[in-house]
Computed example of a mutant assay.
Amino acid sequence: MDGEKSTADIAAEYNISKTSVREWAKKYGEECQYKNTTSENTGINTAQEIRRLNQMLREKDKEIVFKKSSGILRKGNRLVVYRFIDDNKGYFGLRWLCRHFGISLNCYYNYLEGKKDEYHMQRDAIYERIKYIYYNNNRTVGHRAMRIFLSRYGIHLSKTTIHKYMNKNLNLTAVIMRKRPGYRTCKKHKIFNNLLNQNFSVKEKNKVWCTDFTYMCRHNGRTRYNCTIIDLYDRSVIASVNDEHINTELAIATLEEALNAEKNPKGLILHSDQGVQFASYDFVNFCRKHGITQSMSKAGCPYDNAPMERYYNTFKNCFYYRFTFENEELLDEMTKSYVNWYNYVRPHSYNKYSTPMEARFS
């Protein structure tokens, strides 16, 4: 370069490479181009170059300091960012900070005038309510169910807002359902016809019940079994019984408990899989004696009894996998408590997020 200072002089003065000086001069076009004209024009261009370089160095320093000090702020709430701007606007500049945080000047001035104080107080109260619901339901409530729980307290928010509050702001996540193992099909055979054909919508209560078994492996190496009956009308649990044996007696005991609870309804269809317990001589005779019509899924097709599969998925992930049971008596007692929570507290998507009992007696 021509003029009072050469490229080498400028590079040495500002402790930068000569390549950087040349690149900046080229990048900013005519302002950094020097022509061999009069000494007056050369002096003006040199001064412009120095001012431009000084500005770029200041911007570079800001970027370095900002990266070191603001990483945690991008994960925090807006109030923390506002306080950071208050403390550092003298060095960085107000507009520069707002631009890098993605905040409008109007929002910042509203903060200074206290216009958002009431909003922040209301949001903090919602945060506390969300945490109360989350931890009092064994951390099994996701953002969809949380919307229903909040509406019971008169708090009406969109799913998107609740999802942001829970996952981003409060770091609260619901139970992740475990993947089920694949089913191995076997030779197709029929005991009773499938009367449902995957039509699980029922208009009246106590017309179609579904039943199935599940196992619960214990820490002592033993296994306890559960048999449950649900009503397809509202997905409510009619009966749920635990036992150390998975046999016909357990299936009959569960069905008998359900019949007593609902006072022996007439014209009932009981749908199950083709398990030997449901196809046994004693169980078939018990159903005939009480005027119950049996229906069965195709062998190896869990979709034919999808509501029961879905119930046991919730049962395992929201209850059984979350606790350690010292003995069988405690497991049986807590199973009853879970069924009560499932029927009376947990919102169900099939009932448009009413609880099963709310749908049953509405």
Rank of each mutant, 00 (worst) to 15 (best):
R322M: 13
G275R: 05
F325T: 02
P307A: 13
E328K: 12
Y233E: 08
F278R: 11
F283Y: 15
Q277F: 01
E256W: 05
K207H: 05
E329K: 08
N327C: 13
T293H: 13
Y225I: 02
T228N: 04
N285T: 08
G221A: 10
T324L: 14
K289S: 08
A306N: 11
N226R: 07
S272Q: 03
Y303M: 06
M216H: 04
P302D: 05
L259A: 09
Y215I: 00
R218E: 01
F283S: 01
T211I: 00
A299T: 15
M216K: 02
R222V: 05
M334K: 14
I246E: 11
V284I: 14
S201R: 15
S272E: 10
D273R: 12
T293I: 13
I229K: 02
A253M: 10
F283T: 05
S201N: 15
Q277M: 08
G291W: 09
V237F: 03
A253I: 09
Y303A: 10
T211G: 06
L270Q: 12
T214I: 06
C287E: 08
L331I: 09
K289H: 12
R288W: 05
S337I: 11
F283K: 05
H219M: 13
I292P: 06
S201W: 14
V237P: 01
T214L: 00
K207Y: 03
N264D: 13
T214G: 00
D304S: 05
D234N: 13
K203P: 11
A279C: 15
G221Y: 03
T223Y: 12
Y303L: 09
A306K: 12
K289I: 02
A251F: 03
T211W: 00
I238G: 01
E333N: 13
N317C: 06
N247W: 01
C217A: 13
H219A: 14
Y321M: 01
N247G: 03
D282H: 10
T228Q: 12
F323D: 13
G275K: 12
K207A: 04
Q274V: 06
S201D: 15
Y281P: 00
E256R: 12
Y215R: 01
Y338E: 04
L270S: 10
D304F: 00
T314H: 12
D332N: 14
I269A: 09
V276C: 13
L331C: 14
R310E: 10
C287Y: 09
D243S: 15
D234P: 07
E262P: 02
I269P: 07
Y233L: 11
L250R: 01
M334H: 06
L232G: 09
E262R: 14
N247L: 03
N220V: 02
E256H: 15
N285V: 04
C210P: 03
F278I: 08
A279Q: 04
T293V: 15
G300S: 11
N220D: 15
S337A: 11
T248D: 09
V284F: 04
E262A: 09
V202W: 15
V237H: 05
E309S: 04
Y215W: 05
F283P: 05
Y320C: 04
Q274E: 07
L268I: 03
I246S: 11
I230S: 12
E249W: 00
C210K: 03
T228R: 11
